[in-house]
């Protein structure tokens, strides 16, 4: 499990800037600005974590049990709550009600994993969904251009094997991109610029955490 510190944020879009060598860095802009709403501790909950809140929610849309959580933290109701599992000593660094500063969590040049929800594409054919080649355009082909071809053998096993790639719903799934580099941090505006693309459309909620699988990268 990812035990590295992280933030919740909103994807604003992509841009580029020139680094000190004059080379272009293409990056995704994530607006962080999440707040610590509660803490989970080993003694009380059996595990340690930070509960982060992001965005704003109207008072009238907040039910009473939820409102209680925010009242306890002395916070306005948030649009989203998410727990981030962290070791106890990391949790101790943050106070309830504290806005998580991006430069406290990340360093420039550090590798992170970015999780977002991809754009929903609806019911999609195999050529787009699984990059199948489709059929040939000529040689007498009739109404068989964007099909997937055969889906199995005849008598043995006499059925289509489970998990076969077929048309169906594509997108709107949670995807994590590993080992993206932090290109720039702008603490005044709570912005994190991550090199490369992040799944999801603009305004998608993004979870950024220290990279789990990167070796030799800058540790937080």
């Amino acid at each position: 499990m990812n035990q590295h510190p992280g933030i919740l944020g909103k994807k604003l879009g992509m841009t580029q800037f020139f680094d000190e060598k004059g080379e272009v860095v293409r990056c995704t802009v994530v607006h962080a600005g999440c707040v610590v709403v509660a803490k989970r501790t080993q003694e009380k909950d059996g595990y340690s974590a930070l509960v982060l809140g992001l965005g704003e929610r109207k008072e009238k849309h907040t039910n009473k049990p939820l409102a209680g959580i925010y009242k306890k933290a002395g916070q306005t109701p948030k649009r989203l709550l998410k727990e981030i599992r962290l070791p106890a000593e990391e949790v101790a660094k943050y106070e309830v009600g504290e806005k998580v500063a991006v430069d406290k969590v990340f360093k420039v040049g550090q590798f992170v994993d970015a999780q977002g929800r991809t754009r929903g594409r609806g019911f999609t054919g195999v050529m787009r969904r699984w990059s199948f080649a489709g059929g040939v355009g000529s040689h007498g082909t009739h109404e068989y251009f964007r099909h997937g071809g055969s889906i199995g053998t005849n008598m043995t096993p006499g059925r289509t094997l489970p998990g076969l790639k077929m048309p169906g719903h594509y997108g709107d799934e949670t995807v994590t991109i590993l080992n993206l580099k932090i290109a720039k941090l702008i603490p005044e505006d709570d912005l994190v610029l991550v090199e490369g693309g992040i799944p999801g459309a603009k305004n998608t909620i993004i979870t950024l955490r220290g990279a789990v699988k990167k070796r030799g990268g800058v540790k937080a």
Binding site: L12, G13, M14, T15, F17, F18, V29, H31, I186, D189, L191, K202
Partner: peptide, 14 residues
Amino acid sequence: ITQPVIAKLEQSQL
């Protein structure tokens, strides 16, 4: 329409 925050970031690069 460019996102205002991104527009501000890009402005400093021009």
